[in-house]
Design a binder for these strands. Sequence first.
DNA 1: CGTGGGCGGATTTTT
DNA 2: TCCGCCCACG
Length: 719
Amino acid sequence: MDDVSHILAPLNEAQRAAVTAPAGPVLVLAGAGSGKTRVLTHRIAWVVQAEGVSPHGILAVTFTNKAAGEMRSRIEQLLGISGGALWIGTFHGIAHRLLRLHWREAGLPQSFQILDSEDQLRLIRKLLKAENLDETRWIPREIQWFINSNKDEGRRPGSLKDGNDPTRRQLIRLYAEYEAACARAGVVDFAELLLRAFELWRGSPDLLAHYRRRFRHVLVDEFQDTNSIQYAWLKLLVGSEVHLFVVGDDDQSVYRWRGARVENMQDFRRDFPHAQLYRLEQNYRSTGTILNGANALIAHNAARLGKTLWTSGGMGEPIRLYAGFNERDEAEFVLRRIEEWTRRGGQRREVAILYRSNAQSRAFEETFLAARVPYRVYGGLRFFERAEIKDALAYLRLIVNHRDDPSFERIVNLPARGIGAKSLDLIRESAKGARSSLWEAAEASREALGPKAAAAVQSFLALIERLGGEIADRPLNEQVDHVLEASGLIEHHKREKADRGEARVENLEELVSAARSFEPEGGAEMPLLESFLSHAALESGEGQAEAWEDCVQMMTLHSAKGLEFPVVFLAGMEDGLFPHQRSITDLEGLEEERRLCYVGMTRAMKQLYLTYAEQRRLHGTDSYGQPSRFIKEVPEELVEEVRPRVHVSRPMSAGRFHRPESEAAAPGMRLGARVRHGRFGEGVVLSVEGNGPHARVQVSFESQGTKWLMLQYANLEPV
DNA sequence: CGTGGGCGGATTTTT
DNA sequence: TCCGCCCACG
């Protein structure tokens, strides 16, 4: 046996017991901040080093690409080897890998592409339109939900019963049509990746046997977030002899609404009655006060596996509660506290503002912008989801796979080339009649179309063909670059309104540089371009961490899961907002909201603030909310109410941003301020975006129109 | 065919 | 309030 002390030494007793658990299924109930990731990585290291298992025989599944990447690098550090042989990835990533390797057995075309949720919605809309169904009666989102949740449960249209309900019958029919359309186009959506991978194994015993022999150790992170098909897939793989090691926390299950089944944790104990259970309850993150508060809160949920976090550290400071007059007052309070924190030597990046829904970031952004305090909002539109990026990818996808109908639809007339709705309808009709792809229908459409449209269609097809030839055998970034130029996309965006178009061109350039630095993951052998396209579909592209500026972090509670911060503000603690109105009515929904609150509280290491606003402007109207019921579920003695509002800070118009100008990095850049520019003359500030050296202002000049200017170069003077 | 105005809808999010 | 989508118009 190799020396394994470095694997075991940093672990506490419970962690060590889990890491060294003997053969058989294992369930680790890991509370927030109890070293969950550490247990997983050390388990892998242990299995490799102490039990001599080859990394080749290990499969580890996570929920996000980020988590997978972190796990891989931690294992590499721990073992001092390259983790290349380990299969670590998301369920979707691993399913994708399997389908690439075994596309034939899975019944897929070799060059199948992945449909993201937006593509999927678009396709559903197309189907509805083709069927002449009213979108107000058949809501695309609901149909999408119907399809995905059935796939998540492993159900194909053929196995669904309509129960003599005409609505349901129609939904099932649409599901079947949607499947046919995907097959025709050679595309698979996210849920399909999982279901296909499941069916692949279920339908090929030899293949399954192969993987069962290969993967002797299967580890799963965030098990409470698995859905039915993922768990079914795991059970299929595991059979009887493989070691399944799952880690999860039922109290942190916050994705029920997208198919996650906390019940899988209980089911696990039923399905593997001999499973060993380990509890990790010692928390290394938060103060005793924070933990006690979180424990008390979550105790209001029924149906828990049960777990109480404790710490060997001190109680720390009380949890602080602030009742703001309105959302602006709330934001200003948070701002003042953060300034206090930094004045005492704290860093901004150590502070997180967490909220229930993205719209809440706005009030904070405005306040922080005005105060010139750098912040970063996580979430929002991701890189690969931006329209211009998706257009560019659609070109590449269509080049790779002419049958990719969604891509065809997307770009056939972008930039505009005279192929209007009517021509497209014709092509769609004939594709449907011939059960062929749009591409094939377009090829055959010459006669059916007018001469002008026919020429336009043919030249589009020729363009795609030509591009395919021109980019063959060139480096990936040149391929992307060439397609962007030759397709006219760049030109198209350059002609747009200056501000918007510029940003789009920049994003497209970013895509080229992403291509330049792209390295395919080991495994499946496929052309670089195709693997880049799959990567683009599977990776949201959130990871583009910008220069590590010292910024206050703002994000939703959901995206904060798995993170920790010395100082946490849980903002918007009002009934209706949090718990959210739409979850308030049923118990299950409410319990999930409570778990979300638990997740939020347990992000905090040293200081935790709960804040709410008595009056909040939302969707344009003012509402007067009650403090969140969750506040009352935290024991009073742990909470200190900050400055019970004796005097109210008036949020009046003139003093909207009442920061002394001398403190501001760029004085006078308030919204509505009058400024003078050397060349453009006088104007009014319409908006301010970003901060630090990247800040940009939009100014409406009297004679030169509206322009975006980089603050650092513009030399604007207040008038 | 491309643009602007009117209308409705507006958790949470990863893949 | 604000954003995205659809339709009507030029």
